[in-house]
Design a binder for these strands. Structure first.
Lengths: 235, 235
DNA sequence: GTCTATAGTCGGATAGAC
DNA sequence: GTCTATCCGACTATAGAC
């Protein structure tokens, strides 16, 4: 199964080092760290799962923690691959000058759609999610990598767009909190997945569930923001 | 610090066993399992933190896993203490017969206010949260205790109230998903706290932040539900 | 019910052959 | 760059004194 996954992935990452061992370890780490956590995953497990020798871990990554950092960096790279296009589109748009509320509204919708698609629908992120959720609840030094390269740009872009759409002060706390609340709706389906699965009485989300989640989340977000637009700029 | 916390807590729990050792271990587990996870917490750490002897763990709980289960059970009990009053109020109300949309609206507001208060404002849940978040991402057998005794009743109550308020089919998937999305907004501030703290540029939420979060979340929820009320019952 | 001592296991990292 | 062998520390749980 590792070999299969290797083929799906950018050649560049493999080419980073002459061999596939390093990469096989990252893939193993992705699965095992997500499943059992940093401490819960032993180098022997990583070795067995990747097919690499135990000694390859200190050799390539210095230590088990080094491999963990590399795994987080890999996740950041993969998210960039998934969201890069939308992100550069939005950055281009923003760079062109001040946005009209209508433009901002369209951009926000695109942004949230991308997030919902990535977090709810795709299969790949489920592997990442566990690692990143752990990091949120209990940041290791690796959290900095994730936050600075992924979260902060998203937060900034969202703040900017919501400000353009609603007229809220882009530097105030309210706009940051509002953005966070909206993301929370989507994140809930990633983070508390076990609870929603049990509530729905299924072991896996069906196509219909996913579509429904999309619809609900996007309409909720639209409603929350629309009300702000109509509100007089104050306090 | 342990002795201090003991005093704050129900006498019953201490009286469960003649001694405080058992309880001191649970308190230590609450902090350490949250911080380092099940595997990441050693019996030596628990011993040192609680002041109890290492052997007290297998003695009272059978094993480290036994202590972990006891900690989850303790969390469930504590949540019940915090939410019990509102919960029985709501159950009473529901038992009296079918609710008008207005009654359901008031009840929903009370329910979400309680949750927001508990998850965003109080200090105690932050300790619980880490453990429960780990369980969501990676359920151990202890998750069942939490889900059946806490999550399911909340989900059922919420489904019931949203149905009464909006006219949505109480047995459909949509209502479950809508409820989950709304809870997600609140949960985001508990689970992804590190991200919102960094975005706000603070290391701890101030009173003002907490009030703002309350306001934003509750108004969002109200907006999302209000729209449904006006919607024609369909599909 | 609490302690010390220890058995028995498994972990990460290194040394050095190939 | 990959392997085997091994060191050494840390872990959980138990035995048995008090």
């Amino acid at each position: 199964m590792v070999a299969q996954a290797i083929e799906k992935v950018d050649k560049e990452l493999i080419a980073k080092r002459g061999d596939g061992t390093r990469y096989a370890l990252i893939l193993a780490g992705l699965e095992l760290f997500g499943e059992y956590g940093l401490k819960g995953t032993s180098t022997r497990m990583l070795s067995k799962h990747s097919g690499a020798n135990v000694s390859a871990i200190p050799y390539y990554f210095g230590s088990k923690e080094g491999l963990y950092r590399a795994v987080v960096e890999y996740i950041v790279e993969r998210i960039a691959v998934h969201t890069g296009e939308v992100r550069s589109q939005l950055q281009e748009l923003v760079a062109q000058g001040p946005l009209t509320p209508e433009q901002a509204g369209v951009a926000l919708k695109k942004m949230f759609t991308t997030m919902a698609h990535l977090f709810v629908e795709s299969d790949e992120p489920k592997t990442w999610a566990r690692i990143m959720v752990r990091e949120q609840a209990n940041p290791t030094p690796a959290f900095d990598i994730f936050y600075e390269k992924q979260m902060r740009p998203i937060q900034n872009m969202m703040t900017h767009l919501i400000a353009a759409y609603t007229g809220l002060d882009p530097d105030g706390d309210e706009i940051k909190i509002r953005g966070h609340a909206l993301i929370g709706q989507i994140l809930g389906f990633l983070i508390a997945r076990e609870s929603i699965l049990r509530h729905l009485g299924v072991s896996k989300l069906t196509r219909e569930h996913v579509d429904l989640i999309h619809k609900v989340v996007l309409s909720n977000i639209e409603n929350c923001l629309k009300v702000l637009r109509l509100r007089e700029p104050q306090s």
